[in-house]
Design a protein around this nucleic acid. Sequence first.
RNA 1: GGCGGCGUAGCUCAGUUGGCUAGAGCAUGCGGUUCAUACCCGCAGUGUCGUUGGUUCAAUUCCGACCGCCGCUACCA
Length: 658
Amino acid sequence: MSKKTFYITTPIYYPSGKLHIGHSYTTVAADAMARYKRLQGYDVMFLTGTDEHGQKIQRVAAENGVTPKEYVDKIVAGIKDLWSLMKITYDKFIRTTDKEHIETVQKIFKTLYDQGDIYKSEYEGWYCTPCESFWTETQLVDGKCPDCGRGVEKTREESYFFRLSKYQDRLIQLLEENPDFIQPASRRNEMLNNFLRPGLEDLCVSRTSFNWGVPVTFDSKHVVYVWIDALSNYITALGYLGEDDSKFKKYWPADVHLVGKEIVRFHTIIWPAMLMALNVPIPKQVFGHGWLVLEGGKMSKSKGNVVDPVVLVEKYGLDAIRYFLLREVPFGSDGVFSNEALISRINSDLANDLGNLVSRTVAMIQKYFGGVIPKERAAGDYDEDLKAVVSQIKGKTEELMDKLQFSTALAEIWKAISRTNKYIDETMPWALAKDEQNKPRLAQVMYNLAESIRIVSILIQPFMPETPEKIWRQLAVPESQRTWESAGVWGAYDPVSPVAPGEIIFPRIDMAKELEALSALDNSAPAQAKAPAQEKKAEAPKAEAPEGIALIGIEDFAKVDLRVVKVLACEKVEKSDKLLKLKLQCGDEERQVVSGIAQYYSPEEMVGKTLILVANLKPAKLRGIESQGMILAASDKESGKLTLVTIEGEIPTGTKVS
RNA sequence: GGCGGCGUAGCUCAGUUGGCUAGAGCAUGCGGUUCAUACCCGCAGUGUCGUUGGUUCAAUUCCGACCGCCGCUACCA
């Protein structure tokens, strides 16, 4: 009889930039889950990896003067180092540049094509030259490129499409019949209401505008676009359609895909549809967790915003960081990462409660009994109550872990720690120690303390890979009494050697001093206002967005007619959250422009402003209102800030800007 | 604008199918203790449970309206 299997995945990350604490969030959670299941005796398959194709990588590599493969190799090495540092116990690290992956993707593509689920589109579409992007009629926004808003040209650009629409009804059925398929449940409603019920469009699944990707075997102009390339990693990693598909047979369907909330849609609509087309079972669950966001930039001077996981781990230790990530935020909700919150957690939960409990217990066993608890013991008050509380945490922890409720699971374990600290006060060992007659009672008290700690130390293993060992060493817990099962057995503790007082497991941190130090560190580095919990681009179609704009000649710039204008009137566009309608004075002419700045500027404050207008932009309709040009503004996606471009000094409207 | 969610102690949040004096953690104050990492234990709190109507013997919990915030989505020329 073979062991039960458990297959868990993280998204594959897009290796285009540096790593921060948010990247670690999903992966640490998945690791905790994988460790937990292994401890329970499951045959676990834990997959993570990188999504290495696409235009952006190709471009960044070119800018760095290296081949795409050389570029990603370097980044991937860094990611693996980080996972190693964080003791991530993945069973396989898949790269979409792996030979096996590429071959399987090609087979999948061909299969879907042969059976008619992928078809070549020859009908007219729209091409945005600056973005090198191909769009369908319905993707256009008022006839313009949805990415950059510039004009598009009708082309006969060919492209392959996946018949996503064909699976609409089956997808609706899937979500309706399996309410737990998408977690948290609120995401399920979003998928149904915003996508499935309104109707799905077929999906463009190939590109001809770049070549850093998996080539379509039967049509060499095309490479496979992100969907089929990236999502399929979950099965190609198991050898699906490969020479050895034993792992696929063994582990598929996945028990859970852990993903960030921003890519829930791809995993709950596109991915299942692909699997349906391939006649492969659907994964059991997709869990979309929230983001760990940094506190707003405005207080960063006093709070500090150091989020480099390497720095954090070096500073506070791996277990403290992992504990914080999994404890601070209910899995599924967004949470705030701040240095105060981190230090506060470390001090109160780890140093004061757990660390100090171990320290005082070991110290007492050493002091009162020379390190060995006598076998002659006497039961007394409070014993049963302590035992009752501590004995049931294994069950509670398991119940919560099975629902991926890491935070509440940890809270539950900490209740036991708290109860144990209280037990010391109740039994007052130092009083018992004064009278030789009380030795048996004192021995029992010491035993109960050690036993509680032993049980706790086993249960925290999924979250903290280093601390349990330290505790076992100090309490001299024999190998056989460290098993997951033994955490459910009160009284298993039976050491064969004396306790070994040792290092302080979690040193207290001086909050004030530390914040100051962090703030200094922070000031030396560029401040970040916001950081998503993971690389947002991972598997997202926006990877196509133009980045790294090419050099142009002066003659190209001359094509743009920029003018100084003054705002005469301004009002909000009805039924729109972002649009303002502006009436502008441009020399003798008046212009009406619609601009998406309503969230940054009120209509009142706009009036009278001097701005820069792109005067020769093709007119477009927005919300049915004609916009004759475009207002310039600087915006930062990361921080969500936007500010208008104005002009220094007085100059008549209509003046050309060059 | 559409769909959904949230607004509870200074802070972060729990609050099961409406029902006794509304809870936890952190922070604060006071007391206890000394084994321990100025730690632990106990006590004390303050809350119009967003505002406003309604249903009910009874609403934080159900319904309506409103205010504020958020998510997804459409619109950001």
